[in-house]
Design a binder for these strands. Structure first.
Lengths: 145, 145
DNA sequence: TTTTGTGCAAAAGGTTTGCATACGA
DNA sequence: TCGTATGCAAACCTTTTGCACAAAA
């Protein structure tokens, strides 16, 4: 995959081990980790990597369009390496964020064109109970995984 | 409007001046204020009102279903008094959050029923440039209301 | 060699909490 | 009266910043 380096260069970004580690982690962990989680993993690999740099790397990668940040709950921002358009499901009990395969919303493109705003993208947010929270209707939040 | 008091009681919540002030402010300002903004307004009316109480009131009201919190950008949570289902538009330049009249997504109810998750609600998030940001394509963010 | 990125520690938001006191039901 | 809500200040969590040093291009 020599493409990554090119994506970096195309954006005038330098290709550093830290940035690569962050991107690599996100690509291998599509579970929408927080900055803290990315930091812990990257730091385990290279103990010199700092939290501030992870944050800066995440922003740099987002600017370059290589990753995306998702901000739906009130707590920490979550990150994902973009794999094309998709929707999101947010579990109201445990906070788990899941991808939902993309499907087009019929008529929305037309509506968007007619709107007073210049709509560039759209996304559907579904909320409810995730699979594992459905079984434990009266339990506490489950934070595993 | 004696209904508000009832809504409170029905949820086992006490009807306090602070809570009423918070709800009232949100009803009269549908521009999705932050907790800080609500606090400033409420505190102007009653200088004894504290920020902590505003936060607690916002949560109490949300639990009671009288208001809703919206969390789309990475910054402060925004609040709105629910006026029925609607979608949201978020300006990518100035951060302005606008309501978009509700319209049903055809076929989604069926998709939701077939999903592994128990989908309870859904909402569309549109992103792009708001009206005033379109005119100033090269300007800074505009924060006037 | 010239930028740009990194690491550290400190600061800056935004939000929550503990506890004594006040107050609604 | 009883139990919940308030106000205050301190704590907390997440994210950003300033600056000297390191390392890509």
């Amino acid at each position: 995959m020599p493409y990554i380096q090119d994506s970096f260069r195309r954006q005038g970004l330098r290709f550093t081990p830290q940035r690569y580690a962050v991107l690599d982690y996100l690509r291998k962990h599509p579970c929408h980790p927080t900055a803290e989680e990315v930091y812990k993993a990257v730091n385990r690999r290279d103990p010199r990597a700092s939290l501030a740099t992870v944050y800066k790397s995440l922003h740099a990668l987002a600017r370059a369009g290589l990753i995306r940040e998702v901000n739906l709950a009130g707590n920490a921002t979550r990150f994902e390496s973009v794999t094309g358009p998709h929707h999101h499901f947010l579990c109201e009990r445990c906070g788990r964020l899941e991808d939902v395969p993309w499907f087009d919303v019929p008529g929305l493109a037309k509506k968007a064109r007619a709107a007073p705003q210049a709509v560039r993208t759209w996304e559907l947010i579904l909320r409810g109970l995730c699979k594992s929270c459905q079984s434990r209707t009266r339990g506490r939040a489950n934070w595993e995984n």
